[in-house]
């Protein structure tokens, strides 16, 4: 009688305060049956990785609209992996130019969701790729 749930950390790394997207996604994931841990604004990569560890999440989902993603996304991946969480799916979203995406994927971001992505696509991606 297992009661497994997909657990997702929804995080806003960096300093930008635009959390409309992160909150909408958090709710949509909840409505898809996931357990969502939302940590709020201005989280450092270190805080995100540590929260991911303590909560033993299956997914870390981050949103950045400030353009700081080339620095912050890979840093989170690095710290999460350094904690021994090798299976954790790490995804990102926000105002992210197409041209930046290959480098982010190279750095271990499994998928990047740009503006206009239906939340249903995010749910499907997580279900299909979570370990």
């Amino acid at each position: 009688m297992m009661e497994k749930r997909i657990r997702v950390l929804v995080a806003k790394p960096g300093l930008d305060g635009h959390d409309r997207g992160a909150k909408v996604v958090a709710r949509a994931l909840r409505d898809a049956g996931f357990e969502v841990i939302y940590t709020g604004l201005r989280q450092t990569p270190e805080q995100i990785a540590e929260a991911a560890l303590q909560e033993d999440v299956n997914v870390v989902a981050m949103s950045i609209l400030s353009g700081a993603h080339p620095h912050l996304f890979p840093k989170v991946v690095e710290l999460v992996r350094a904690n021994g969480m090798n299976d954790t799916l790490i995804v990102g979203g926000g105002v992210i130019p197409e041209g930046d995406i290959p480098a982010l994927k190279e750095a271990g971001i499994a998928e990047v969701f740009t503006p206009g992505t239906p939340t249903g696509n995010i749910v499907e991606f997580i279900k299909a790729n979570v370990k």
Binding site: R5, A26, R27, L29, R30, D31, A32, G33, F34, E35, V36, I37, Y38, T39, G40, Q43, Q47, E50, A51, Q54, E55
Partner: peptide, 16 residues
């Protein structure tokens, strides 16, 4: 939905 928003942690960010 069987899902949940676990929102207590946000008030304890400084302990992380």
């Amino acid at each position: 939905s069987g899902g949940a928003i676990l929102g207590d942690r946000i008030r304890m960010n400084s302990l992380t």
